[in-house]
Design a protein around this nucleic acid. Structure first.
Lengths: 346, 346
DNA sequence: CTGTTAGCGCTTTCAG
DNA sequence: CTGAAAGCGCTAACAG
């Protein structure tokens, strides 16, 4: 086995071609005033000698890294991995690199990840907040250094950070209204941490829909948990024990909804006849569970693309970031059998 | 709004403390011989002045980046996002950073991503191959420079690159044998590109199981497609049109299996009575589809952790990478109702 | 335990 | 269109 090859630098190329390193540097880029011929010579020599540019030296000199950082609660959720895929595509095409880290839903890790991103000098940051994050001071360092930060999905109001999300309030309002239209009178809500806009907005949309249809909101018809599959089946157990059961349930995500449905079905509850169900996210399981789950569809992939595009547009073209404050993406109510109490002939 | 703060360097700290930059550099690290008191002073000053280390300068000097690169076919598959989550955890805890890119299942993109990773000087690379990759010359540059590359899941034999995967052959053999045990006589296989070990091994395990049970392998009982949901329902259409239908199907992934089952069910095919089903991966949808899908479980998260640990162990402790050649992880046959022709009382 | 010094490889004025 | 020279911020000998 041969030893690792020696790294070749622009000086090596320069020496070989009897020109200066500066010219080589120019030749390797899209520098305007440079002889086409010398440029070609440089490129050839570089390829031949196995040259690779040293991004550290370049970054050190140019004071930026060409790296975009991403902090998300978890990488392994269907929605998030779609978002990341969208981000990666845009970032990759724009010739940036992507640093990724997950907060594992804790503020502690989110803070340490933010610090790491800061120290590693990302040029911009994309963030979706952890479950229990109570403040966003850990992103202040970025504004002080003029590094753009964009929130998506799980966002927080801040006059320096644009946010990209969907209208959770309206979506929840619509889906709850749909349940009411189907004849539900006692609608339960299973939601997540009210610290997060996505869950508080959904909760509020639900309450507003009840109110607008003269259905009193009862406190014990709202359950807040972590929206996991486990939480779903636990809540199902709870429902089974209720003296008067709900006739409709709106869950703030599909994972939890599906698992809740499964447990109830096992105990003989008929869906949607006994209890109608609606979820949120349009997870792949939503069209596998029987009956298929009514839900809100919104595109993670697209959200990732949009977030990355805005960030990179700002970085490359100095688009004004503030102009973009609060971009609201489209979401869509998808009605499936799990909520159709009226027309059973599906 | 104030202008971006000036970056503070170790020289600024040195000047303020009337010591040398070298001492500051040492104080900031775990350098052995350094006075506890000066170290404390340095740390304090650094915090107070808002110092952040310059990773470019450090990398330039030290000639390594503390960055691990990952190239996967897609980010947004349940399995892959689990793997990435596992990788991220280990990498993050080891204080490395993670560059992530996806080949979108094409060799072309894989090559360009590998080049980018190389030029950006990752310290090590984790790779799962694209659907249509025919050779791995694009990773030769890494061995020439002594940069470790590890393949996982979709691997390729190479005497310089360790591989981490499961025994796809045996798993497929077992699951096919299980179908045979359930009384299946005409078992179809739906598989993926035979360029990839995961799919060819599964195919071969299937054939071997048939052979060992004196069932002749018929060419038209094997379908190769891209294993997407679409491909699943298309294959279902094909099955419906067959003069003699199979009584069992082993699909090389769950996504495709589930979608195939859904289409068949819609057309009145009884599963498992008419056709028994088995998949691969233990995707979340496998325990939502009815009947629940028999499948092979293997842990993406764990595979990611293991791959990252080996890579980082090599980087940090100079573990011999070749010692680790071909690590085979555990997988498990999970029997569910979709394949139980005999005992229906589940 | 601390300081001096050199240099990692690149980009960018400034001059020609 | 090309060259000379300086310097980005850090670390690692080496010397004391």
């Amino acid at each position: 086995m041969s030893e690792p090859e020696k790294e070749v630098t622009i000086y090596d190329i320069a020496k070989k071609l009897n020109i200066s390193a500066a010219t080589v540097s120019r030749g390797l880029k899209d520098h305007p005033g440079i002889n086409k011929n010398t440029k070609k010579k440089i490129l050839n020599a570089a390829a031949e000698m196995g040259y690779r540019s040293n991004s550290f030296a370049s970054s050190l000199r140019k004071k930026h890294s060409n790296i975009i950082g991403v902090i998300v609660p978890r990488l392994n959720s269907n929605f998030m991995s779609d978002v990341i895929a969208g981000i990666e595509k845009v970032v990759n095409e724009a010739n940036y690199n992507l640093f990724i880290s997950q907060s594992l839903e804790t503020m502690k890790k989110e803070v340490s990840n933010a610090k790491a991103m800061f120290n590693n000098r990302v040029d911009g940051l994309l963030v979706s907040l952890a479950y229990d994050t109570t403040n966003i001071e850990h992103f202040e360092a970025f504004v002080n250094r003029g590094i753009p930060v964009i929130f998506f999905d799980r966002v927080q109001e801040h006059d320096q950070f644009p946010s990209i999300f969907i209208d959770n309030y309206k979506a929840a309002y619509n889906i709850t209204t749909h349940l009411i239209d189907q004849g539900c009178k006692r609608i339960m809500h299973i939601g997540g941490s009210q610290l997060r806009n996505v869950y508080s907005d959904r909760f509020n949309g639900y309450k507003k829909a009840l109110e607008d249809h003269n259905i009193p909101f009862e406190k014990d018809m709202a359950i807040i948990n972590n929206l996991s599959a486990n939480a779903g089946s636990e809540t199902a157990q709870l429902i089974l024990k209720m003296p008067v059961r709900p006739d409709g349930v709106f869950v703030a995500n599909d994972i939890c909804a599906v698992s809740c449905m499964q447990t109830l079905k096992k105990e003989g509850v008929k869906i949607p006849q006994d209890i109608a169900f609606a979820g949120f996210n349009n997870d792949p399981t939503a069209c596998v569970i029987e009956p298929n789950l009514t839900t809100i569809d919104y595109k993670g992939y697209e959200m990732g693309e949009v977030a990355a595009k805005i960030l990179i547009g700002h970085l490359d073209n100095h688009d004004d970031l503030h102009q973009t404050h609060s971009l609201i993406l489209r979401s869509e109510l998808i009605i499936r059998e799990s909520s159709l109490k009226k027309s059973k002939n599906i």
